[in-house]
Design a protein around this nucleic acid. Structure first.
Lengths: 206, 206
DNA sequence: ATTTGTTTTAACTATTTGGTTAAATCGAAT
DNA sequence: ATTCGATTTAACCAAATAGTTAAAACAAAT
C-alpha cells in the first residue's frame, strides 16, 4: 500500500525535475508535469499541495546533487592540483549528462535568492581546505599564491559556463555545428586542467 | 507631434528592458511594463502589438550592446595579450553596471535558441583575428599555443560567470556578505588578466 | 467482506493575463 | 477652428492556469 506511494512520489519528482529544468519555474505548467508523470492533475495536487511547494522540493533535490559532489571532492584530495583535476573532471562529466541544470539553477537562484539560504546550512561547505592546500603548495614552492575564492570561481567558471553559453559558442564561434560543439566539450576538461596548471605551477613541467 | 512619439517608444523599451531582465520573458507582465513606463496598457499595445514582438525588439537591443563591444575590441588590438586585457576590463566594467543582463541573455537564449540566428549575421564576428594574434604570439615565442575557442571561452567564462553565480559565491564562499562580494568583483579584472597571462606567457615576468 | 489509502474522472472556481475596443481628451500643426 | 495623431480611461473578451471538489473505481491488507 505504501510501496506504490513512494513510487508515485518519485515519478512526480522526476517529471517535475524534467519540466522545471526545461521551462523554469515560470514557464512550467502543472498539467505538463502531471502528463509527464503519467498521472492526473488531481493526484499531483494530492501529493504536492502547490506548485511552489513542488518546486522547492525539486530545487533542493537538484541543487543537492551538485553541491554534494563539490563537498566530496574537497575532502578526498590531499594536493591542490589533484583537487582541481578532480573537480574539473567530475563537474564536466556530471553536467554533460544534464546540460540544462546549470542554467536552471543559476536562473532560479537569481530570481529567488532566498532559495540558497536553506541550502547553505544543509551542507557545511568548508573552503578552509582550499586555503590549506594552496598554502601547502606555496610553501613547497610548487605553485604561485592565489586567493581561494578566485581559484574556485575560475574553476567553476571554466567548467560550467561552456554549458550555459552553448547557443553563443555554437552560434558565434562554431558555425552552428553541433558536432564541433561536442568535440569542444570533449576537449574541455583536459584543456581547463592544463590551462590552470600552466597558470599555477611554478616550474611548469611538460 | 512626432517628437513625443520617439520619446514614448524609448520609454517603453527602457521599461521593457528593465522588467524583462528582472523577470525574464515568462515572468514579465505587460501591465508591469506599462506601469514602469508610466503609461497604460492600451498605449503599450498601440506601440507594440504583442508581448513577443516587444520582447524580440528588447532582446536584440540588449544583446547588441554586448556583442558590439566584443567586435570592437577585436579590431582595436594588435597583440593577443592586449586584446585579452581589453576584453576582460571592458566586459567586467560593462556587466557591473547591468549585472542581471548575462543571466537574462543566457537564459532566454537557452529557452529560445532561434533568437540567436538573426543576431549572427547582423554582426559579422570574425574570430580569425584571434587565431592570427595567437599564431603571432607563438611565432615570436611569447605565448604557448592555445586553441582560439578555448581561449575565448576561458575569458568570457571568468568574466561573466562571477555575475550569474553571485548568489552561490556570496552564499557559499563569502558568508552572505555583499561587501565582500563587491570587493571580490573589484579585484576580479586584475586577477583574471594576471591569471591568464601567467598561463599563456612563456617567460612569465614579475 | 470490509476497510483504507491511492488513483481516476470530470466538472468546476477563481484569478491572472494578453489583448481588444470605443469613446473621450489633449496638444500641436494647419 | 479644425484636424490628426498620441494618450487616457474603462470596460471588456477569451484563454490559460493553479487549485478544488465530489464521486467513483481500485488494490491491497485485515
Amino acid at each position: 500500500m505504501v510501496s506504490v506511494t513512494e513510487n508515485t512520489e518519485q515519478k512526480i519528482i522526476d517529471a517535475a525535475c524534467k519540466v522545471f529544468i526545461q521551462k523554469g519555474m515560470d514557464g512550467a505548467r502543472m498539467q505538463e508535469i502531471a502528463d509527464e508523470a503519467d498521472i492526473n492533475k488531481a493526484l499531483l495536487h494530492y501529493y504536492f499541495r502547490s506548485k511552489s511547494k513542488l518546486f522547492d522540493r525539486v530545487f533542493v533535490e537538484i541543487f543537492s546533487d551538485i553541491v554534494k559532489l563539490l563537498g566530496e571532492e574537497i575532502n578526498h584530495s590531499t594536493e591542490i592540483i589533484e583537487l582541481i583535476e578532480r573537480m574539473v573532471n567530475n563537474y564536466i562529466h556530471l553536467i554533460r549528462e544534464r546540460p540544462f541544470v546549470p542554467d536552471f539553477v543559476l536562473h532560479e537562484l537569481n530570481r529567488h535568492p532566498q532559495l540558497i539560504v536553506q541550502q547553505i546550512h544543509q551542507y557545511g561547505m568548508d573552503f578552509s581546505k582550499f586555503q590549506l592546500l594552496i598554502d601547502e603548495g606555496v610553501l613547497n614552492n610548487k605553485i604561485h599564491y592565489i586567493q581561494p575564492v578566485h581559484l574556485i570561481v575560475n574553476v567553476l567558471s571554466m567548467c560550467i559556463f561552456p554549458f550555459v553559453a552553448k547557443p553563443i559558442i555554437m552560434g558565434f564561434m562554431l558555425n552552428g555545428d553541433e558536432a564541433k560543439y561536442n568535440q569542444f566539450i570533449d576537449e574541455r576538461a583536459g584543456h581547463v586542467v592544463s590551462f590552470i596548471k600552466s597558470s599555477l605551477l611554478i616550474n611548469n613541467p611538460e
